[in-house]
């Protein structure tokens, strides 16, 4: 049974593509056959973050329009055995994604025994974003602790609950997960940033993890390497925790109890540390 997971947010620049790349890679590293699809037609970027931009021959729209077979368009990841990337088209517009076409591609991926199909949504609430969430079984709502991102997440949750196939057909609702990214424990401690508890209380969907703000993310994207591969970095560890919790059976509370949040507390530097510097 394949599971379709959408990474969405409403707002742009919050870390959807970074998260899609990290989570898809994390699932593959744990042995699950995974495909990650870029839904941002016209502004493709997942290929760059995954480091496969020079191997793109055919794209998602070519497959939908019958100009290429799915197997020709899928790019095998160079780091993970079980991971494939389906890039977006750079030259078409978002209307090229028809609902039937997207469904057909997802059905084919199911038949190819992909366990997880990760859909990297474009920003906004227009056609591309709706297509990315239409077939979702689960959704990771990527949110920054910042007012406009929280409001946009609220909006996209509403759309998920009305426009997804599951909602339209009156089936079990899409399972929602809140992922907070670009989190700064220091700024939270100083009252300059919403805490993860604040965001969770406002959006009222279960939390799956908190990713700290980190310079490592830029270092990763510079090299076309998903952040989860940056050994020893906070971001890689935090994403690995998210993947582990995502795969956990049972409730989210249990998953969080078993694997508590890390990198969310701020230790004030002591006097000596302040005098002699050091991080």
């Amino acid at each position: 049974m394949s599971k379709v997971v959408v990474i969405t947010s409403g707002k742009g620049g919050v870390g959807k593509t970074t998260t899609s790349a990290a989570i898809a890679s994390g699932l593959a590293l744990r042995g699950h056959k995974t495909a990650v699809i870029d839904f941002d037609v016209g502004l493709r970027n997942l290929d760059l973050i995954m480091g496969c931009e020079r191997r793109v021959v055919y794209d998602f729209v070519n497959v939908i329009q019958g100009d290429a077979r799915l197997s020709q368009a899928l790019i095998k990841d160079k780091q993970c055995e079980n991971l494939y990337i389906l890039p977006a088209s750079q030259t078409r517009d978002k209307d090229a994604l028809t609902e039937e076409g997207v469904e057909e591609v997802i059905d084919q991926l199911r038949q190819m025994d992909f366990e997880f199909i990760v859909c990297d949504s474009p920003a906004g609430i227009e056609h591309g974003a709706v297509m990315a969430l239409t077939f979702a079984d689960e959704a990771i709502i990527t949110t920054n602790p910042e007012v406009s991102s929280v409001r946009d997440s609220d909006r996209i949750i509403g759309i998920l609950q009305s426009k997804s196939r599951r909602a339209q057909n009156g089936e079990e609702p899409v399972v929602e997960h809140l992922l907070i990214t670009r989190y700064s424990p220091r700024r939270v401690a100083e009252g300059e940033m919403l805490s993860y508890k604040d965001v969770q209380e406002l959006l009222r969907i279960p939390l799956i993890g908190v990713i700290p703000e980190s310079e490592a993310v830029l270092q990763a994207s510079n090299q076309g390497m998903p952040a989860i591969h940056l050994k020893g970095s906070d971001v890689a560890e935090a994403y690995s925790d998210v993947v582990a919790r995502f795969l956990e059976e049972g409730s989210r509370e249990e998953a969080l109890a078993k694997r508590p949040l890390r990198f969310v507390d701020y230790a004030k530097p002591g006097l000596i540390q302040r005098i002699f510097g050091g991080k």
């Binding site: 007012v147 929280v150 409001r151 609220d154 909006r155 949750i157 509403g158 609950q161 609702p173 399972v175 929602e176 919403l194 406002l202 959006l203 009222r204 969907i205 279960p206």
Partner: peptide
């Protein structure tokens, strides 16, 4: 944000 958040929770 508390004043403008609309949805009912998953």
């Amino acid at each position: 944000l508390g004043l403008i958040i609309t949805h009912e929770g998953g």
